[in-house]
């Protein structure tokens, strides 16, 4: 189903959310990236990625959580992973999309012999890429749920992730993520994911709140 949903990832990245209003921002893309990187690289735990979902209001007054920025670190040790390798067809699809995205960014026509694309596109890389096309309306999805309830969500381990009613959590589990965290803030949500089981950390929660206190 992921293949079907993401057949046109390139177009989606170009066109999605064109009608969305931006809230007044106290940050820019560069500082956001630095904050995400600081959070992940400075953490004691091994996080695979961090995403900032930014809240905004569309023309009809609906609150939307959309992609703000993300930092992908990757897995510490891919050999420890116990997920089933994706099929050859799925890998071909991912590589094709990656070539198109490379072409979109570089402006150079896609080539079937692109070295960096020949490397397997891992499940967590793909999950991170697909996340760029997603948004959550009116409390939908794991980030939306955290934002609307103003309560952090911490799902350590497969059982906890699978017990979530949110599709994003189930999708994450399918792609090998074993911990998902969503921390709501005034103007968005910080989401963290890991292929390892990581239990609740007050230190991390505080770090997020300090790092993403944009008005300071």
């Amino acid at each position: 189903s992921t293949t079907t949903h993401n057949n046109d990832l390139t177009k989606t990245l170009n066109n999605q959310q064109q009608q969305q209003h931006q809230p007044s921002m106290f940050f820019n893309q560069e500082t956001l990236q630095q904050r995400l990187q600081t959070l992940i690289e400075g953490a004691r735990e091994s996080w695979t990625y961090a995403i900032f979902w930014q809240s905004s209001v569309d023309m009809s007054g609906v609150t939307i959580l959309g992609w703000g920025d993300g930092y992908y670190k990757g897995e510490e040790d891919k050999l420890k992973r116990k997920t089933t390798p994706s099929s050859a067809i799925e890998q071909e699809h991912r590589k094709k999309v990656l070539r198109e995205l490379n072409s979109l960014i570089s402006g150079v026509p896609a080539s079937s012999s692109d070295d960096q694309v020949d490397e397997e596109v891992t499940d967590t890389e793909w999950f991170f890429l697909v996340s760029m096309t997603q948004s959550f309306v009116n409390g939908g999805g794991l980030p939306g749920h955290a934002f609307y309830s103003s309560v952090p969500i911490w799902l350590p381990g497969n059982d906890r992730i699978l017990s979530s009613p949110c599709d994003r959590a189930k999708q994450a589990q399918l792609f090998g993520l074993q911990t998902m965290v969503c921390i709501p803030l005034a103007n968005g949500v910080v989401e963290l994911g890991s292929t390892e089981v990581i239990f609740h950390s007050l230190d991390l929660m505080n770090k997020v709140r300090v790092l993403f206190n944009f008005s300071s």
């Binding site: 170009n14 959310q17 931006q22 893309q29 990236q33 959309g66 993300g70 992908y72 490397e119 760029m132």
Partner: peptide, 26 residues
């Protein structure tokens, strides 16, 4: 409104660049 696709493209460009580095050092 154009800021959103631009933000995504910036994220994507960064992701692809870092992936390139990871592949080269693998």
């Amino acid at each position: 409104p154009a800021a959103v696709p631009q933000a995504r493209k910036a994220s994507l460009a960064r992701f692809l660049e870092k992936r390139k580095e990871r592949v080269m050092h693998a």
